[in-house]
Design a protein around this nucleic acid. Structure first.
Lengths: 151, 151
DNA sequence: TCGATATGGACAAGTTGCTTGTCCATCCCT
DNA sequence: AGGGATGGACAAGCAACTTGTCCATATCGA
């Protein structure tokens, strides 16, 4: 695949997709092993948004690239499992501000540690210098949009 | 995000995932615009496997990371839409060998062209040299496993 | 060569994570 | 104050998957 990818954009895309899948799976597995085994990757993407100063269900929906009903359903589940709490919104009585509970924060920390471990083999494989260059170039590409594949 | 990604493996993973999503979506949109608008990205991943010398439903299932029932369902749809045909397997009377029809090949060619276009902006952004380095490093990471995110 | 077990695939039913559709309360603008 | 926009809840529907079961054929050991 290595040589093919250099010439074939389709293979290149598959490569990026497969890498993303491995990273997500690797993180998910480790987070599960750390005791948070009642979550799916999508929940982690939600955490990332909520932890960043709180969020409303609508903002979460946009961030995840799904309808707000789907986001509300996901939030329901997180509340029921004790990771998230709905508080009153400071400036909008209609909205509810989502915040992480202590368990939610613990899971976030576990995910951070899991990500370090999941990325480590790749980091080692390339060496620090080439890995840094990879991160730099990927960042330059600056993909923006929902963090979750939308298809 | 650029600077964060350099230090935060979680952000790095999100970056790779978002890029993969953009590439897949970009290819999918262009293939649809080329007249093959009755397909989903998963179908494309199936084409890639079938075009490579044919495949059985079971092999396809493994390649996609789903059960063979799911793969059979997907194949049914592709046959119904005229992209794939089931032929007898040369050495195993139980199995059916899947092959692309002419329409299937046309779609594969369209996907190739679409991938070139979808990748082009990124290629331009980095320049040929850095892009080649990116492909080389990604290839070196050598992710293997189902092409479809399994979660 | 024959019997036991494994494998490819079809058929059926159930699950789930999303969708669209509808409604109400609250906000914002004039 | 009135009217449209927005955040969110409730309900129903759907599509892509799953598990479970069965049959035909293949493979392997005695």
């Amino acid at each position: 695949m290595s040589e093919a990818a250099a010439r074939d954009p389709l293979a290149f895309s598959a490569l990026v997709l497969a890498l993303a899948g491995e990273l997500v799976q690797g993180i998910h597995d480790r987070v599960g092993a750390a005791g948070f085994d009642d979550l799916r990757p999508a929940h982690g993407f939600a955490f990332a948004r909520i932890s960043h100063g709180g969020a409303t269900t609508g903002e979460l929906a946009e961030h995840l690239g799904v309808t707000k009903q789907a986001a509300a359903q996901l939030v329901d589940e997180l509340v029921r499992k004790g990771y998230v709490e709905r508080t009153t919104h400071p400036t909008d009585a209609r909205a509810r501000l989502l915040r992480l509970t202590e368990r939610g924060w613990a899971c976030t920390r576990a995910a951070d540690a899991a990500a370090v471990e999941a990325v480590a083999p790749y980091r080692r494989l390339l060496g620090e210098e080439r890995f840094a260059a990879l991160v730099r170039d990927l960042s330059a590409l600056g993909p923006r949009g929902p963090v979750r594949p939308a298809w």
